[in-house]
């Protein structure tokens, strides 16, 4: 007991170099705090701007939006790189230096590893925040495609009876939303007319998939949740496995084992079930897609078959 007491007392006398580690750690924390603040300030200012630009960008391809969007992400990456470079230069290098100087057997070695752990935990926090803002910015791209689709449908309703034959002037019914220029022959004089869809209607083929995905997102989420369960169950089981190491009570051990078996059973189930849910989602999404652009159905079905091979 006394020996233990002495030892603890001895450890309290911290080596001189510890102050350098402390200082680096403090600086690192303050530095990241400032970067966090910058990032938040920048992102919260950029997000409404981006939404505004997307709304007011009349360009079909939203080129202005994409330029600004890419610039915003560039700044965010710049902050991230700054953190990474500083981490390597000011934290890891210091750590490597002391780690090579201080033997792992030394009673002070934990100061070195704690330094690294504290700094890297803080760094991970920063990375998580970066990911958070990045996702928030990504979301500004989302547009309600239902609105765009409705506009196309309204336009079609308005024009479908207003196309006349260039030869005889007879009215030609536009039977569906054409995605590209198409020859239509006149029912009266058989002259071949070229029907050119509007820019907006042409764009339907580019938004159709997005719209179908938007409509079936709940099924995608069900699949995702199931798919993620595999790792969760694996880790849960692994934790239980570790807890057995210091357990000697047979009864407790048996209980743990049966829990583990149960988890493994669940895990095997999700491994089989996740692809099924994926397929349910894909089928629903393609069905929806085919409803929106029946002309692409033949092509889409081939794509669907190809995708099934990789589930």
């Amino acid at each position: 007991m006394f020996g233990l007491f002495n030892k603890q007392k001895g450890e309290e006398a911290l080596p001189e170099w510890y102050s350098e580690l402390q200082e680096s750690q403090e600086r690192w924390f303050i530095f990241l705090e400032k970067l966090d603040a910058k990032m938040e300030e920048f992102a919260t200012a950029a997000i409404p701007e981006l939404k505004e630009i997307l709304q007011s960008d009349d360009d079909l391809y939203k080129r202005t939006f994409h330029r600004v969007y890419s610039g915003v992400n560039g700044q965010l990456s710049n902050i991230r790189e700054k953190a990474r470079d500083t981490y390597e230069e000011k934290i890891l290098n210091v750590y490597y230096h002391y780690n090579s100087q201080i033997s792992v057997l030394s009673k002070h070695h934990n100061l070195v590893s704690d330094f690294r752990n504290n700094c890297s935990d803080r760094y991970n926090d920063f990375e998580n925040r970066y990911e958070y803002w990045r996702t928030q910015i990504e979301k500004t791209q989302e547009r309600d495609l239902e609105i765009e689709y409705q506009k196309i449908l309204d336009e079609y309703e308005a024009i479908k009876n207003k196309f006349n034959c260039t030869q005889c002037g007879g009215n030609i019914q536009i039977e569906k939303i054409f995605l590209i220029e198409t020859y239509i022959s006149c029912p009266y004089c058989k002259t071949q007319n070229t029907f050119a869809p509007s820019t907006q209607a042409r764009n339907l083929q580019h938004i159709a998939r997005g719209l179908a995905e938007q409509r079936t997102v709940h099924l995608y989420e069900e699949f995702e949740t199931e798919n993620n369960k595999e790792r969760e169950l694996y880790h849960e089981r692994h934790e239980l496995g570790l807890s057995k190491i210091h357990e000697s009570d047979k009864k407790v051990l048996n209980e743990i084992q049966s829990k583990m078996d149960d988890l493994e059973q669940q895990r095997q189930f999700v491994i089989k079930n996740a692809p099924k849910l994926h397929q349910i989602y894909l089928r629903a999404m393609y069905d929806e897609w085919n409803k929106i652009t029946p002309d692409l159905k033949e092509h889409n079905e081939k794509m669907y078959q190809n995708q099934l091979q990789h589930l």
């Binding site: 600086r27 690192w28 530095f31 400032k34 970067l35 910058k38 990032m39 920048f42 700044q75 710049n78 902050i79 700054k82 500083t86 000011k90």
Partner: peptide, 19 residues
């Protein structure tokens, strides 16, 4: 080139944050 573009745009937003 990034440094050049940054300079043209008055710097990066986190340029004033230092370790």
């Amino acid at each position: 080139y990034a440094a050049k573009f940054a300079a043209e745009q008055g710097g990066n937003i986190a340029d004033d944050v230092n370790f």
